[in-house]
Every structure is written in structure tokens, then in C-alpha cells.
Amino acid sequence: MKFTPEKLIDMLIKMYKIRFFEEKVDYLFALGLVHGTMHLSIGQEAVAVGAISTLKPDDYILSTHRGHGHCIAKGADINLMMAEFLGKETGYCRGRGGSMHIADVEKGNLGATGVVGGGIPIASGVGLSIKMRKTGQVVICFFGDGAANQGAFHESLNLAAIWKLPVIFLCENNMYGMSMSVEKAFAIENIAKRAGSYGFPGEVVDGNYVLAVYKVVLKAVERARKGKGPSLIECKTYRWKGHSKSDQNLYRSKEEIESWKMKCPIKRFKEKLIAEKIITNEEIKIIEENAKNIIEKAVDFAKNSPEPSVEEIFDGVYS
């Protein structure tokens, strides 16, 4: 598969943005500027970027509670994301949604959900709508390994299968549903195997290698666009941070976490691009600086944005 240098560098930039954004909001949480909770995808950047880079701008995604990476990869405005984290009126959800519900309907990001597996039935509906409107779009539905054991997973994958809907079911297997390991939660080795029981292809891919994710997802996207129906892709990856802010990592070892940090998707991709002389160390430094600057400016934007007004508390409940 041939990639232009621009495309490769764009993917790297997005991965950096996701990493720095999440490191920053983690820090802001520690400072008490962000309240509630958040679910960080640090270590999983290759999945969001690899998958979403296959899409056209008007294609859809459905995200998860661990969805910051999906939003950024889909082209979200970092300022509006950061403002949402700080609960500001200028945020994507006017401060009503927070970390877990960032959506940008105009840009095809149909939002993150706080319910594990909650986006999967919606994705089939989006696929149905695409098919009925004959627009040639596709939808990538992200969900985690935990969601694959929800009942709605079964109902929705079957529906997409019988109607040949243009949905890419993308399972980010980060090895744990909160504290429960996939070894305990599944009696099969690969979640992708379940696709066979619905009559469509399932494929396992190294979720820490952005180009591998891209390649497999692109195949599924092309299949969906041709009207051949859905696919299930399982990206094996790992979350470095806890499930949410209450996690003390009692269910896994430091050694295990460290071993996955050695497989950092950004480091791996960066080194590949340097080795292939697509980018230099100096250029990487500039990319890192630029990404950090964007994040810092977003923090300033968010801090200087107004709070939502209590007078408008009912806005958005009904159309």
C-alpha cells in the first residue's frame, strides 16, 4: 500500500495531538480544572487515527466513552473540545456533555456515549439511513472489548448483516473492560471471530501500528461502499492509563503496563518514518512543538470562555 508523505505525516500529527491533548486534560484534572471523570486513550492513538484516516469528510463515526482520539482524528476543533472539558459555553456541547459526550454532528462525528455498547445499535441505524438515502457514505462504529459482551452488540451486528449496511464495527480491544481482562470475559481468543456467526468478515489487526489499522479498515470501508455490508475489525491495543479517574490499577501489574509502553504506537510510527527518510528528527520536534502549542492555545481559549448561563439550563432538552 502506497501512502503519500503528506498522508503519513498528517497521521503522525494527529497521533501527537491526541497524546498531548490527553496528557494535558489529565494534568488539568489533577489541578481541579476539569471535574467529573474522563477516560484516556493514551497508548491507543493508532486505532483512532488509522481507522478514521480511511474516511471521507462526510463519513460518520460513532465514538465511545474513551473517545477523545476519535474526535481529534475526525477533525475536531481542539479549542471547542478543551472548552467542553472545562464545562464552558463555547464547548462542543455548551458545557452540557463534558469529556464523555463530545460530538460534532456537522462533521460526521455522531458522538460519544457513556453507556458501553450504546453506540452500536445507533450505528446500524446510521448505516440504514445511508443506505436509504443512497449517499455512498459509511460509518465506523468504535467500541471496546467490554461492549462486545452487551446484548445490543448481537442485535445490531445481525441487523447490519441482514440488510448489508455500510457499517464498520471497530472493536478496540485494549485488554480490559474496566478491571475485567479479556481472558476472563471471553472464552474465545479473538472477538473478531464473532463476525463469522453473523455472516460477514472479521479481522484481527495490530492496533498499535497505525498503517496496519489503516489497511484493514480501508478494506472494510471499500467493501461497505460497494454495498457488500459490514465488517468487524478487532484492533488489539492497550490503555496505559486507568479505566477512569478512580482506577488504582489493582488488576494488572506494572510490568505489564511497562511492556505495552515499549510498544508505543507513536514512537513506533515516528521511528518508521524517520528510518524511511520521510521525516527528520528536526521536523518531528517542530511537529511536537506545534501540537503542544495548539493544545496550550486551546487551554487559554477554554479558560477565557464564558460559563453557560443558568437561565438557559433547559436549552436542548427539546427541539
Binding site: Y60, S124, V126, L128, A152
Partner: peptide, 9 residues
């Protein structure tokens, strides 16, 4: 879910 997904699109 299918109704919802279709409705928002």
C-alpha cells in the same frame, strides 16, 4: 437504535 441512528442522520 436503528430508528435513532436514522433519525439523527
Amino acid at each position: 437504535g436503528a430508528a435513532l441512528g436514522a433519525a439523527i442522520t
